[in-house]
Computed example of a mutant assay.
Amino acid sequence: MRTTRVIIGLCVATALFAAGCGTTEEAGGNEPAASGGEPVTVTDSRGKEVKLDAPAKRVAVTEWNAAEYLVSLGVMPTAVSDIKGYGQWSSAAPLDDTPKDIGTRGEPSIDTLGSLDLDLVVVTDSLTEGALEQVEAKIPVIVINGGDAKDSIGSMFANIDLIAKATGTEDKAAQLKSEFDTKLAEGKAEVDKLGATGEKVAFADAWVDSGTVSIRPFVKGSLVADVFARIGLESPWQMEGDPVYGLAQADVEGLTKLGDVHFWYMANESEGDAFADALANNAIWKNLPFVKNGKVERLPDSLWMFGGPRSMEQYVDAAIDALKA
């Protein structure tokens, strides 16, 4: 995870998670496909039509957001990249013990994929050079893009709709959207009840590299910040994020521009807590208004910042709990 975050923090265009749009239509005659179900054609983020004999049942994914999408749609993935890491960072849609591990997210094992009798592989554009072509030579592949900071929530659901069409789970996708909208409405009502509507919340994560704390603000356009905005909480970050994920870069000195806001952050037991540990004796950190006034909250572990509706619903709950703390 640290490697992935460093890449995102330093390279704006790196894709961690995805959004795409697709269409489903009959690809042949009126006869059902041999594997059960009508043929399906979807158009992935490349604009490429991907034809399946029937809705995919055995699906491998190379990114964790796609794994969460599938589980949330009622399809347990046949294979997932870095299953241990997924379990450490995403609790919203847990895997059972059936998926096979296919290696790293950027470079899955081609041999393992080829041995699993798959109907479909869902990948992002963060695969290492040449990996996509190797996978696609053996198995149908849907490529999903990174997000869109202009409409992060819409991009998330466009991505879900694409995968739902490929797996024949459109009804479940509609249910996910309805439940998500309900959760946001409930969260907004609770924020208002607490008298917190309009309060400013700076959300970030951080890591330590060679003794230096690198801070990654989730500014307007990031999925988490946009979910917070939908329940009535404003982002105070006065910086522009990357056009895909709405992520920016800062150091501890940069936090002095925030003022007396709520400062919420993510950490993980697998990597430690850069704010509580590395900055514990930092004079600048200790004198920030939100630190002195006790407005710093570490949100619960294993809430995937780049996940799907289930992860974002967890963030709504975490926000309410933090406001009550």
Rank of each mutant, 00 (worst) to 15 (best):
T3M: 13
N159L: 00
V244G: 14
P32L: 15
N293G: 10
L184A: 00
E31F: 13
P55S: 05
V244K: 12
V208R: 05
W285E: 07
D125S: 14
D125C: 03
I215M: 04
K177N: 05
A278Q: 06
G187N: 05
K51V: 15
G187A: 09
F275M: 00
L162R: 03
Y315S: 01
D82G: 06
P108L: 14
I144V: 13
V213A: 02
S90Y: 02
T182L: 07
A93W: 07
V261K: 09
I284G: 06
Y69V: 01
L247G: 04
E38M: 14
S81C: 15
K292F: 09
V75F: 06
L194G: 05
A322Q: 07
G28F: 10
K177W: 03
E271W: 05
R58M: 05
G130D: 12
S90T: 02
L258T: 08
Q238W: 02
K57L: 06
L323T: 07
G37W: 13
K84C: 01
S235E: 10
T212N: 09
E190I: 08
T128H: 13
P94M: 14
I102Y: 09
Q238R: 07
A189K: 14
T124D: 06
N281I: 01
D148G: 05
L258R: 09
G130C: 12
V75H: 06
A318Q: 01
G74R: 13
D101T: 06
D260G: 07
V208L: 11
D161K: 10
G168L: 11
W285D: 05
L288Q: 10
D301L: 03
V71T: 11
I142M: 02
A319Y: 06
T128A: 14
F203D: 03
Q88R: 10
T43W: 07
A278T: 02
G168V: 07
A173V: 03
P94G: 13
G28T: 13
G308L: 01
E271P: 02
P94H: 14
K286N: 15
G195I: 09
A34N: 06
G241D: 10
M266Q: 07
V75I: 15
K257I: 08
V219R: 09
P236K: 12
E313L: 02
D161C: 04
S81A: 15
W237Y: 15
N293L: 08
